[in-house]
Amino acid sequence: MENNYLALFYDLIAHPGKGLSRAREDRPWIFLSAVIILSVISIATGTTLFVSRFTGVRRVALFSNLFLVMVLVAVFWIVNVGILHFFAEVWGKKGSVIDLFITLGLAIFPSIFVSPLSLLVEGLGGGRIFFQSFFTVVLLLWCFLLTLSAIKEVYSSATFEALLILLTPVVLFMVLSILLPLGCILLAMLSLPL
């Protein structure tokens, strides 16, 4: 069992497509839980460490940050599954929501490197903000690519289709965030006495 998990972990790093496909078939709940817990602790520790350099910190800040990250990761994960599954169906794709839940959960695994990289940045003499930003962008890009692979795997879709499923809610959100205030302004103007 442990060897399976180690092999799965290795595949997620070296062959993400193969790893996610394997995760979809095996549904490794314990492994998924371990990855999520480690990610949450790593994000909380790394971010608290980085922020505390500039703001100072009380010991309680780590625990409140840990709680905050836990809630944010859970919300982001669940909402993402719901939204992406909805848009996959909108684009005519069929797949299991449980599979998407598992693979998207594993797609956040690069965040276990937040803490090691923050520690590395901590040891640098200068350019801490630059390096922290650089590493954050690299990790986000990695998570994005894994999410793309997860969608491809679950809905047996091509890269372009997966990109469409992934970017549609983003584009829609951007359009709505522009249109809604404009609509409100328009309504307000119309309701003004002429």
Binding site: T45, S52, R59, I112, S115
Partner: peptide, 20 residues
């Protein structure tokens, strides 16, 4: 990962001492 988490927590604790 685990080592960095432990070290990170130690550093946070170190900074927390003055705050404490």
């Amino acid at each position: 990962c685990i080592f960095s988490i432990v070290m990170g927590m130690y550093l946070i604790g170190e900074r927390a001492v003055v705050g404490k």
